[in-house]
């Protein structure tokens, strides 16, 4: 797995995720990266990667909306000027 630090360089994070606990995709997977968003500007996140942790918090066992809320709050908080993602290319979740 890889730790990716995404600076908040744009007003949006700019990723779409699918998956979460109790779905076919138990950990959130990146399905889109929007051009011009912070994630795209960072250049290190890729479509297909699985998000294991956000700012050190595990997404394991979290349902989709809970995982999405955690990521949204990590981007919104003014406590940090970046969001740390622990990602993997592999579907390790089960």
């Amino acid at each position: 797995s890889t730790l990716v630090r995404v600076p908040k360089s744009a007003s949006t994070l700019g990723i779409a995720i699918e998956g979460g606990a109790n779905t076919r995709q138990p950990l959130p997977r990146i399905v889109t990266i929007q051009r011009g968003g912070s994630a795209h500007n960072c250049g290190q996140l890729k479509v297909g990667q699985i998000i294991l942790e956000v700012n050190g918090v595990s997404l394991r066992g979290r349902e989709h909306r809970d995982a999405a809320r955690l990521i949204a709050e990590a981007f919104k908080t003014k406590e940090r000027d970046h969001v740390d993602f622990l990602v993997t290319e592999f579907n390790v979740a089960l």
């Binding site: 779409a16 995720i17 699918e18 779905t23 076919r24 089960l94």
Partner: peptide
């Protein structure tokens, strides 16, 4: 295991 996985629902997609 495979059968169980097939019964799980697909996920919604959220843009962040």
């Amino acid at each position: 295991v495979r059968e169980k996985r097939l019964t799980l629902p697909p996920s919604e997609i959220t843009m962040l």
